[in-house]
C-alpha cells in the first residue's frame, strides 16, 4: 500500500522553496529528468546541483524559458498540453510536474503522457481541500486567495484545481502505483504519517506524489 511519510522536510538549501526540496528528495541521483513547467528553472538547478541529474525542461512562458536557457539549463518553449506527445516512450527516469497540474487543460492526459515518457512521475500541487480554502468558500462565499494562490479567479492560470483526495482518485482510475506521498503545511512541516486521508486533505496545504507504472 501507500507509503506516506512524515520525515521532516529538509531545508538545507537556504531560501529554496520547500515543495521543490521535497520533489528533489524523491529523485535518485544521476537520473534523467524532464521537468514540465520549469518556471525560471529553480527545480532543474536544484536537481543538477544536489542530484547530478541530466535535466530537461518545458516551459510555456517565453520569459521563463529565456531565463532558464541563460542559466545554461536545457529548457524549451512549449505547451505541456500539446508537446508531451512528441517525446518517445521511456525517454526519462522521472517526469516532474511541479505546481503545474492545476494549470493544464487536460490533467489526466498530461499524467498519462508523463508515465509513458518516464518510468516515474512526480506531481506536486496545491491542495484545494485545505481547511483555509474550504473556510474561504464556506464563510465568505468567495474563490480563495491565499499566500500560495495569490491570484484572483479572473487572473489565475490555474483552471483545474483538485484536492488530495481528487488526485488519489485519479491515480486509481489511471491504474498507477503510488510509491510515495507527502503532504505539508506552508511552513514545510509534514502532515502526520498515520493520519487518515481526510486529515491530509484538511491539513495538507501542498502535496507531492511519486507515481510509477504498474508494469
Amino acid at each position: 500500500m501507500l507509503a506516506r511519510e512524515d520525515t521532516p522536510v529538509s531545508t538545507a538549501q537556504h531560501g529554496t522553496r520547500v515543495d521543490l526540496v521535497v520533489v528533489a528528495d524523491m529523485v535518485k541521483p544521476d537520473s534523467r529528468v524532464l521537468d514540465v513547467g520549469s518556471g525560471d528553472g529553480e527545480l532543474l538547478r536544484l536537481l543538477a546541483e544536489t542530484r547530478g541529474v541530466d535535466g530537461r525542461g518545458i516551459e510555456i512562458s517565453r520569459e521563463g524559458v529565456n531565463r532558464c536557457v541563460a542559466k545554461g539549463l536545457a529548457v524549451i518553449q512549449g505547451d505541456a498540453d500539446i508537446d508531451l506527445a512528441d517525446y518517445p516512450d521511456d525517454a526519462f527516469d522521472y517526469v516532474i510536474l511541479s505546481q503545474t497540474l492545476q494549470a493544464t487543460r487536460r490533467p489526466r492526459w498530461v499524467l498519462e503522457q508523463m508515465l509513458r515518457i518516464g518510468r516515474n512521475a512526480i506531481v506536486s500541487f496545491p491542495n484545494f481541500g485545505h481547511w483555509k480554502i474550504r473556510l474561504e468558500i464556506l464563510m465568505r462565499g468567495r474563490m480563495p486567495v491565499t499566500e500560495n494562490l495569490p491570484e484572483s479567479w479572473y487572473e489565475t492560470p490555474n483552471i483545474h484545481f483538485c484536492t488530495i483526495r481528487d488526485f488519489v482518485e485519479l491515480t486509481r482510475k489511471l491504474d498507477v502505483r503510488m510509491d510515495r506521498a507527502v503532504a505539508f503545511n506552508s511552513s514545510g512541516r509534514p502532515v502526520r504519517l498515520n493520519a487518515p486521508w481526510w486529515f491530509w486533505n484538511m491539513f495538507g496545504e501542498q502535496a507531492v506524489f511519486l507515481l510509477s507504472r504498474k508494469n
Partner: peptide, 18 residues
C-alpha cells in the same frame, strides 16, 4: 527541429525572442 531533437532524446534548449 526541437520536436525532432526531442524524438531523438537529445539535449535541447529552445528560446523564442520577442
Amino acid at each position: 527541429i526541437v520536436h525532432a531533437l526531442n524524438a531523438a532524446s537529445a539535449s535541447v534548449s529552445f528560446a523564442e525572442i520577442e
